[in-house]
Design a protein around this nucleic acid. Sequence first.
DNA 1: ATGGTCGTTGCACGA
Length: 257
Amino acid sequence: MRLATWNVNSLKVRLPRVEAWLAEIQPDILCMQETKLSDDAFPALTFNALGYETAHNGQGQWNGVAILSKVGLANVVTSFGDGEEPDVESRFIQADCGGINISSIYVPNGRALDDEHYQYKLRWLNRLLRHLELTADSAGNVVVMGDFNIAPEDRDVYDPAKFEGATHTSPPERAMLAALAAWGLEDLFRRFHDEGQIYSWWDYRAGDFHQGRGLRIDLVMASRAVADRAVWTVIDRNARKGQSPSDHAPVIIDLED
DNA sequence: ATGGTCGTTGCACGA
Protein backbone atom coordinates (compact mmCIF):
# COMPACT_ATOMS: atom_id res chain seq x y z
CA MET A 1 0.00 0.00 0.00
CA ARG A 2 1.34 3.41 -0.98
CA LEU A 3 0.58 6.43 1.24
CA ALA A 4 1.41 10.04 0.46
CA THR A 5 0.94 13.53 1.82
CA TRP A 6 1.22 16.80 -0.11
CA ASN A 7 0.56 20.41 0.76
CA VAL A 8 -0.65 21.50 -2.68
CA ASN A 9 -1.00 25.26 -1.91
CA SER A 10 -4.31 25.78 -3.76
CA LEU A 11 -5.88 22.73 -5.37
CA LYS A 12 -7.58 25.06 -7.85
CA VAL A 13 -4.21 26.12 -9.24
CA ARG A 14 -2.51 22.77 -8.67
CA LEU A 15 -5.15 20.33 -9.96
CA PRO A 16 -3.41 19.62 -13.30
CA ARG A 17 -0.17 18.82 -11.50
CA VAL A 18 -1.94 16.73 -8.87
CA GLU A 19 -3.69 14.70 -11.59
CA ALA A 20 -0.43 14.09 -13.46
CA TRP A 21 1.30 13.17 -10.21
CA LEU A 22 -1.43 10.69 -9.23
CA ALA A 23 -1.13 9.03 -12.65
CA GLU A 24 2.63 8.71 -12.24
CA ILE A 25 2.91 7.74 -8.56
CA GLN A 26 -0.37 5.82 -8.12
CA PRO A 27 -0.75 6.25 -4.36
CA ASP A 28 -3.50 4.27 -2.65
CA ILE A 29 -4.04 7.06 -0.16
CA LEU A 30 -3.20 10.76 -0.61
CA CYS A 31 -3.63 13.36 2.10
CA MET A 32 -3.66 16.96 0.85
CA GLN A 33 -3.36 20.25 2.69
CA GLU A 34 -4.05 23.87 1.77
CA THR A 35 -6.65 23.03 -0.84
CA LYS A 36 -8.00 26.59 -0.33
CA LEU A 37 -11.42 25.43 -1.52
CA SER A 38 -14.92 25.29 -0.11
CA ASP A 39 -16.41 21.80 0.06
CA ASP A 40 -18.70 22.73 -2.85
CA ALA A 41 -15.71 23.59 -5.03
CA PHE A 42 -13.73 20.43 -4.22
CA PRO A 43 -13.27 18.44 -7.48
CA ALA A 44 -14.50 15.11 -6.08
CA LEU A 45 -15.70 13.86 -9.47
CA THR A 46 -12.26 14.35 -11.00
CA PHE A 47 -10.76 12.11 -8.32
CA ASN A 48 -13.65 9.62 -8.48
CA ALA A 49 -12.87 9.18 -12.19
CA LEU A 50 -9.30 8.27 -11.20
CA GLY A 51 -10.58 5.60 -8.81
CA TYR A 52 -10.51 7.52 -5.52
CA GLU A 53 -13.11 8.05 -2.86
CA THR A 54 -12.67 11.47 -1.27
CA ALA A 55 -13.31 13.43 1.90
CA HIS A 56 -12.68 17.17 2.21
CA ASN A 57 -12.83 19.68 5.05
CA GLY A 58 -12.64 23.11 3.47
CA GLN A 59 -13.58 26.69 4.15
CA GLY A 60 -12.54 28.36 0.87
CA GLN A 61 -9.74 30.88 0.49
CA TRP A 62 -7.51 29.53 3.25
CA ASN A 63 -6.59 26.13 4.72
CA GLY A 64 -8.57 23.06 3.65
CA VAL A 65 -7.55 19.39 4.05
CA ALA A 66 -8.54 16.26 2.15
CA ILE A 67 -8.11 12.49 1.97
CA LEU A 68 -8.22 10.47 -1.26
CA SER A 69 -8.38 6.69 -1.00
CA LYS A 70 -8.53 3.69 -3.32
CA VAL A 71 -8.74 1.30 -0.36
CA GLY A 72 -11.97 2.43 1.28
CA LEU A 73 -12.92 5.58 3.14
CA ALA A 74 -15.29 5.51 6.11
CA ASN A 75 -16.01 7.17 9.45
CA VAL A 76 -14.96 10.67 8.40
CA VAL A 77 -14.26 13.06 11.29
CA THR A 78 -13.52 16.78 10.83
CA SER A 79 -13.40 18.12 14.38
CA PHE A 80 -11.52 17.22 17.53
CA GLY A 81 -13.34 14.92 19.94
CA ASP A 82 -12.49 16.89 23.07
CA GLY A 83 -15.91 18.48 23.54
CA GLU A 84 -14.44 21.96 23.13
CA GLU A 85 -15.51 24.51 20.54
CA PRO A 86 -14.79 23.31 16.98
CA ASP A 87 -11.68 24.80 15.40
CA VAL A 88 -12.73 27.82 13.35
CA GLU A 89 -10.26 26.84 10.61
CA SER A 90 -10.31 23.74 8.38
CA ARG A 91 -7.08 21.99 9.34
CA PHE A 92 -8.04 18.43 10.28
CA ILE A 93 -9.77 15.49 8.64
CA GLN A 94 -9.65 11.84 9.64
CA ALA A 95 -11.04 8.65 8.12
CA ASP A 96 -10.54 4.87 8.15
CA CYS A 97 -8.86 3.77 4.93
CA GLY A 98 -7.56 0.28 4.19
CA GLY A 99 -7.59 -0.68 7.86
CA ILE A 100 -5.65 2.42 8.93
CA ASN A 101 -6.92 5.39 10.91
CA ILE A 102 -5.66 8.21 8.67
CA SER A 103 -5.48 11.91 9.59
CA SER A 104 -4.61 14.71 7.17
CA ILE A 105 -3.47 17.76 9.11
CA TYR A 106 -2.41 21.32 8.41
CA VAL A 107 -0.83 22.64 11.60
CA PRO A 108 -1.06 26.43 12.08
CA ASN A 109 2.09 28.25 10.95
CA GLY A 110 2.55 30.27 14.16
CA ARG A 111 3.99 33.32 12.34
CA ALA A 112 6.24 34.48 15.23
CA LEU A 113 6.93 33.41 18.81
CA ASP A 114 5.29 36.56 20.20
CA ASP A 115 2.27 36.30 17.90
CA GLU A 116 -1.12 35.12 19.14
CA HIS A 117 -1.06 32.69 16.22
CA TYR A 118 1.85 30.86 17.86
CA GLN A 119 -0.29 30.20 20.95
CA TYR A 120 -3.02 28.95 18.61
CA LYS A 121 -0.45 26.59 17.05
CA LEU A 122 0.51 25.12 20.43
CA ARG A 123 -3.14 24.83 21.53
CA TRP A 124 -4.00 23.18 18.21
CA LEU A 125 -1.24 20.59 18.64
CA ASN A 126 -2.43 19.90 22.19
CA ARG A 127 -5.96 19.39 20.89
CA LEU A 128 -4.68 16.99 18.21
CA LEU A 129 -2.86 14.93 20.84
CA ARG A 130 -5.89 14.95 23.14
CA HIS A 131 -8.09 13.89 20.22
CA LEU A 132 -5.84 10.90 19.56
CA GLU A 133 -5.78 9.98 23.26
CA LEU A 134 -9.58 10.07 23.38
CA THR A 135 -10.47 8.42 20.07
CA ALA A 136 -7.59 6.30 18.73
CA ASP A 137 -5.66 3.21 19.80
CA SER A 138 -1.92 3.72 19.61
CA ALA A 139 -1.49 -0.08 19.55
CA GLY A 140 -3.54 -0.17 16.33
CA ASN A 141 -2.98 1.18 12.84
CA VAL A 142 -2.75 4.97 13.06
CA VAL A 143 -1.16 7.48 10.68
CA VAL A 144 -1.14 11.24 11.15
CA MET A 145 0.39 12.96 8.15
CA GLY A 146 0.54 16.41 6.68
CA ASP A 147 2.13 19.81 7.03
CA PHE A 148 3.26 19.98 10.66
CA ASN A 149 4.99 23.35 10.23
CA ILE A 150 7.66 22.00 12.61
CA ALA A 151 11.14 20.82 11.68
CA PRO A 152 11.80 17.93 14.10
CA GLU A 153 15.56 18.48 14.43
CA ASP A 154 18.27 20.91 13.35
CA ARG A 155 19.34 18.50 10.58
CA ASP A 156 15.90 19.17 9.06
CA VAL A 157 16.71 22.89 8.71
CA TYR A 158 19.01 24.44 6.09
CA ASP A 159 20.38 27.02 8.54
CA PRO A 160 19.37 26.41 12.16
CA ALA A 161 20.95 29.69 13.30
CA LYS A 162 18.52 31.57 11.07
CA PHE A 163 15.60 30.01 12.94
CA GLU A 164 16.69 30.86 16.46
CA GLY A 165 13.87 32.85 17.97
CA ALA A 166 11.55 31.86 15.13
CA THR A 167 8.74 29.38 14.68
CA HIS A 168 9.12 25.87 13.22
CA THR A 169 12.09 24.96 15.44
CA SER A 170 11.20 26.32 18.90
CA PRO A 171 11.43 23.95 21.88
CA PRO A 172 7.69 24.09 22.71
CA GLU A 173 6.78 23.04 19.16
CA ARG A 174 9.33 20.25 19.15
CA ALA A 175 8.06 19.20 22.58
CA MET A 176 4.63 18.69 21.00
CA LEU A 177 6.19 16.41 18.38
CA ALA A 178 7.87 14.54 21.22
CA ALA A 179 4.51 14.23 22.97
CA LEU A 180 2.98 12.74 19.83
CA ALA A 181 5.94 10.35 19.68
CA ALA A 182 5.43 9.44 23.34
CA TRP A 183 1.80 8.62 22.56
CA GLY A 184 3.06 6.20 19.93
CA LEU A 185 3.71 7.95 16.61
CA GLU A 186 7.05 7.69 14.81
CA ASP A 187 8.47 10.03 12.17
CA LEU A 188 8.65 7.34 9.48
CA PHE A 189 11.14 9.19 7.28
CA ARG A 190 13.82 8.72 9.93
CA ARG A 191 13.42 4.94 9.87
CA PHE A 192 14.96 5.04 6.38
CA HIS A 193 17.09 8.19 6.21
CA ASP A 194 19.77 9.37 8.64
CA GLU A 195 21.09 12.15 6.47
CA GLY A 196 20.30 15.82 6.87
CA GLN A 197 19.59 18.42 4.22
CA ILE A 198 16.56 16.53 2.95
CA TYR A 199 13.63 18.94 2.83
CA SER A 200 9.95 18.99 1.93
CA TRP A 201 9.34 22.76 1.74
CA TRP A 202 11.24 25.60 0.11
CA ASP A 203 10.22 29.27 0.05
CA TYR A 204 9.25 30.44 -3.42
CA ARG A 205 11.56 33.44 -3.05
CA ALA A 206 15.19 33.94 -3.91
CA GLY A 207 15.69 30.61 -5.63
CA ASP A 208 15.60 28.82 -2.27
CA PHE A 209 14.71 25.50 -3.91
CA HIS A 210 17.62 25.55 -6.31
CA GLN A 211 19.96 26.81 -3.58
CA GLY A 212 18.95 23.97 -1.25
CA ARG A 213 17.43 26.22 1.41
CA GLY A 214 14.48 24.29 2.80
CA LEU A 215 12.87 22.66 5.80
CA ARG A 216 11.55 19.15 6.41
CA ILE A 217 8.15 20.00 7.88
CA ASP A 218 5.86 17.56 6.04
CA LEU A 219 5.80 14.40 8.12
CA VAL A 220 4.25 10.95 8.13
CA MET A 221 3.80 9.99 11.79
CA ALA A 222 2.83 6.34 12.20
CA SER A 223 2.01 3.96 15.02
CA ARG A 224 4.35 1.01 15.56
CA ALA A 225 1.99 -1.45 13.84
CA VAL A 226 2.10 0.64 10.65
CA ALA A 227 5.77 1.61 10.95
CA ASP A 228 6.80 -2.04 11.09
CA ARG A 229 5.14 -2.57 7.70
CA ALA A 230 7.01 0.33 6.05
CA VAL A 231 9.50 -0.71 3.38
CA TRP A 232 10.44 2.53 1.60
CA THR A 233 9.99 6.29 1.76
CA VAL A 234 10.98 9.29 -0.30
CA ILE A 235 10.33 13.01 -0.53
CA ASP A 236 9.42 13.52 -4.18
CA ARG A 237 11.37 16.69 -4.90
CA ASN A 238 10.69 16.27 -8.63
CA ALA A 239 7.20 17.55 -7.83
CA ARG A 240 8.76 20.83 -6.66
CA LYS A 241 10.34 21.42 -10.09
CA GLY A 242 8.93 22.77 -13.35
CA GLN A 243 5.88 24.87 -14.13
CA SER A 244 3.71 26.18 -11.28
CA PRO A 245 4.86 23.89 -8.47
CA SER A 246 3.55 23.95 -4.92
CA ASP A 247 6.14 25.22 -2.45
CA HIS A 248 5.94 21.76 -0.80
CA ALA A 249 7.01 18.37 -2.16
CA PRO A 250 4.98 15.20 -1.47
CA VAL A 251 6.19 12.58 1.00
CA ILE A 252 5.61 8.97 -0.12
CA ILE A 253 5.58 5.86 2.08
CA ASP A 254 5.25 2.26 0.90
CA LEU A 255 3.87 -0.39 3.26
CA GLU A 256 4.00 -4.14 2.71
CA ASP A 257 0.51 -5.65 2.70
C1' DA B 1 24.01 42.63 3.00
C1' DT B 2 19.42 42.76 1.33
C1' DG B 3 15.52 40.99 -0.79
C1' DG B 4 13.60 38.10 -3.64
C1' DT B 5 7.42 34.80 -4.78
C1' DC B 6 3.27 32.90 -4.85
C1' DG B 7 -1.85 32.47 -3.69
C1' DT B 8 -5.75 34.55 -2.01
C1' DT B 9 -8.37 38.93 -2.93
C1' DG B 10 -9.01 43.46 -4.17
C1' DC B 11 -5.23 47.84 -4.12
C1' DA B 12 -2.98 43.88 1.62
C1' DC B 13 -1.98 39.82 3.86
C1' DG B 14 -0.64 35.06 4.76
C1' DA B 15 2.94 31.67 3.99
